[in-house]
C-alpha cells in the first residue's frame, strides 16, 4: 500500500499536472471516433465537460486552452492525428473553439455547490449548448449553408449521443471526484491567470 495523500507537495504543481492530464484526455478522446457526417462522434467533448466537473473552471479552461494551443502549434492532438491552424479554421473549428467557454461554464456551475448532481447536469447541458452555439455558427460561416442546414448537419444528429454522454459524465464525475484532491480556498485565489 502506498502512503495516501502526500498533502505537503505543491498544490499548484499537482493542479498543473491534473490539467495537463485532462488536456491529454481531450486529445486522446479524438482518437476514439465513430464517423457519422462531417463531425466524427467522439468522446472528446465528454472529456471537455469532465474537465469542468473535475477541475473547476480555472483549471478546466487552462486544460482546454493548452490543448488548443498545442494543436495550433502543430502538435498532433486534433482528430486524425493532426494539428495546425488548418483544423481550427476549417469548417469544424468552431466546435474546438467552443470547448473553451464550455469547460469554463461546466466548471463554474459545478463549483457553486459541492458534488451537487442537479447543478452538474444543468452545467453539462449549458456547456453542450455553448459548444453547439460556436460550432454551428462557425459551420454556417465556413460553408455558406443556411442555418437550418447547418443545424441539421452539425447539431441534430449528435444530440442523442450527447444526452447519453451527459448522463455518463455526471455519473463518472461522481465516482472519480473523491480521489482528486482539489486545492482549498487559498489555493484557488492564486490559480491560473
Amino acid at each position: 500500500m502506498n502512503p495516501s495523500p502526500i498533502h505537503d507537495s505543491s498544490e499548484q504543481l499537482r493542479m498543473t499536472v491534473y490539467a495537463s492530464l485532462m488536456a491529454a484526455f481531450i486529445a486522446a478522446g479524438a482518437y476514439i471516433a465513430v464517423p457519422i457526417g462531417p463531425v466524427p462522434v467522439v468522446l472528446q467533448n465528454m472529456f471537455v465537460l469532465l474537465a469542468g466537473l473535475l477541475l473547476g473552471w480555472r483549471w478546466a479552461a487552462a486544460a482546454v486552452g493548452v490543448y488548443l494551443l498545442a494543436g495550433i502549434c502543430g502538435l498532433p492532438v486534433f482528430a486524425g492525428g493532426t494539428g495546425g491552424v488548418g483544423r481550427l479554421v476549417g469548417p469544424t473549428g468552431g466546435y474546438l473553439i467552443g470547448y473553451l467557454p464550455a469547460a469554463a461554464v461546466v466548471g463554474w456551475m459545478s463549483e457553486r455547490r459541492d458534488n451537487n448532481r442537479v447543478l452538474d447536469v444543468l452545467g453539462l447541458i449549458a456547456g453542450t449548448m455553448v459548444v453547439y452555439l460556436c460550432g454551428v455558427f462557425w459551420l454556417k460561416m465556413a460553408t455558406g449553408m443556411s442555418i437550418g442546414k447547418s443545424l441539421a448537419l452539425g447539431m441534430y444528429p449528435f444530440l442523442p449521443g450527447d444526452g447519453l454522454k451527459i448522463i455518463a459524465a455526471a455519473a463518472i464525475a461522481g465516482a472519480v471526484r473523491p480521489m482528486i484532491r482539489k486545492p482549498g480556498k487559498v489555493a484557488h485565489s492564486h490559480g491560473y491567470s
Binding site: M1, P3, I6, D8, S9
Partner: peptide
C-alpha cells in the same frame, strides 16, 4: 506492505512534513 516504509522515505527529502 503498509508498514510505513514509503511514508518514512518521503520525509527524507521533505515531500512529507
Amino acid at each position: 506492505n503498509g508498514s510505513g516504509k514509503s511514508t518514512f522515505l518521503r520525509h527524507l527529502n521533505g515531500l512529507l512534513t
